[in-house]
Design a protein around this nucleic acid. Sequence first.
DNA 1: ATTGCACATGTTGGATCCGAAATGGAAGGT
DNA 2: ACCTTCCATTTCGGATCCAACATGTGCAAT
Lengths: 245, 245
Amino acid sequence: MPTESTKADEVALILEDEIVSGALEPGIVLRQEQLSERFGVSRTPIREALRRLAALGLVTFVPNRGVRVQALSREELREAFMVRAELEGLATEIAASRITPEDLAALDEAERKFSTLTAELRRRALDNGRQDPGLFGEWMRANHAFHDVIYGVAQVPLIERVAKSARRTFMGQTIWTGRAELDELYAKNELQHRAIREALAAGSVAGARALAREHVLASGRLIEAVLEQVGGAPDASERRLREPA
Amino acid sequence: MPTESTKADEVALILEDEIVSGALEPGIVLRQEQLSERFGVSRTPIREALRRLAALGLVTFVPNRGVRVQALSREELREAFMVRAELEGLATEIAASRITPEDLAALDEAERKFSTLTAELRRRALDNGRQDPGLFGEWMRANHAFHDVIYGVAQVPLIERVAKSARRTFMGQTIWTGRAELDELYAKNELQHRAIREALAAGSVAGARALAREHVLASGRLIEAVLEQVGGAPDASERRLREPA
DNA sequence: ATTGCACATGTTGGATCCGAAATGGAAGGT
DNA sequence: ACCTTCCATTTCGGATCCAACATGTGCAAT
């Protein structure tokens, strides 16, 4: 079997996932030597992977000092949601003009999965007042899956790519505790997904766009509110570059 | 003076500009050794620069074979313009609510430069019926500079970054010959810039957004028309990877 | 003449090596 | 005691080296 991908690509994929999922806390410094021995490769592919992540905006290079996981400011977080809102609105509008009955069925299925997960999440949150990070991740994945169906219908790979790169940037910004705002987020998301699905089913092009746009903006506002309460901690961004051994 | 940037960054910047400006034709293969001796550095920083360009979507890696300058399909080109239209509309709306008299002066200045270049370009096109690629590049830079002033006013670095990455992707798609559509592009651009400026001056938030959006979409349509006429050549994308020596 | 195979050549991916920059701490001066 | 200077250590950026892979060519067999 000939090589179909390079070490640098594999490392980049893994690190990307870890940063997006929050496993790598924003602000921490990545040491090339550590990554090198962790992945069992030399520093060369590590550096190439880091360059890629830097281009995606997930880490920043500080020449001769190191790379650190990028922490988004409150402002940048808002921007990321604005970008997503516009692009998901656009994609949804395009999807509205192309959608077929089979697509609608797939959308239904995604919505159903999302609903059951939402119910489970809300129930558990009421029980112990605290989110299960794993379950929250599941929920977020299902949430994204719903929109991914729409992207699939719209068939706009470039728009999809750009929007998803904005989507990544907000995850792992904080620990998700069981705030009341989160419950509102769950409830509203469900309602809004349903509304979007109906607009798509009705072929309401302008309506679908507006609903999708407003949906993302609303989610952004709520997440912002959650972060506001959790604390103004822009995390470890102030931490010194050179960690004590 | 300590190092403030790395070789990899410098190389990436230069190559980025060359791809965007069309100096590096889409489809051609970039040889690491050649770039290495051209920039007077070893292959290591070259490869890191190429990884960065790959993450931006400007080139594609084919493992063990090489990297080639990415050629956009007609569809992707349309998408790129749609992305830009939405995001520039958004940025312009935000700018409208923040703009100061000093900003307006800067915008005037940018518009003036753009106008003189446009006039020069149209005059020459009438003279010899063929564009000067260098002058066209100048014009496009001035065009972008106008929008960059708006981004500066809006102060939305993330939106700016995303929009610019979409902006890059369309240049250098073909050789710019002196088509009638291009003259229309020049004329309309000038008018639309003026309209945007006036909307910003008047503080017309919604108007500024709509005008900016429509401006980008209109440019996209015209450029599409030019490409349609120039020929369906997606260029050298079919070319073999290994060039004859 | 055409097909298949082995070898030659050039290019990439990854490892290793080395000089330079940055940090931390110790030593010395005020 | 505090600040400055110098040196050791760590880590990075870049160069070089080597093996793996891909393509092209020539020769032989049918």
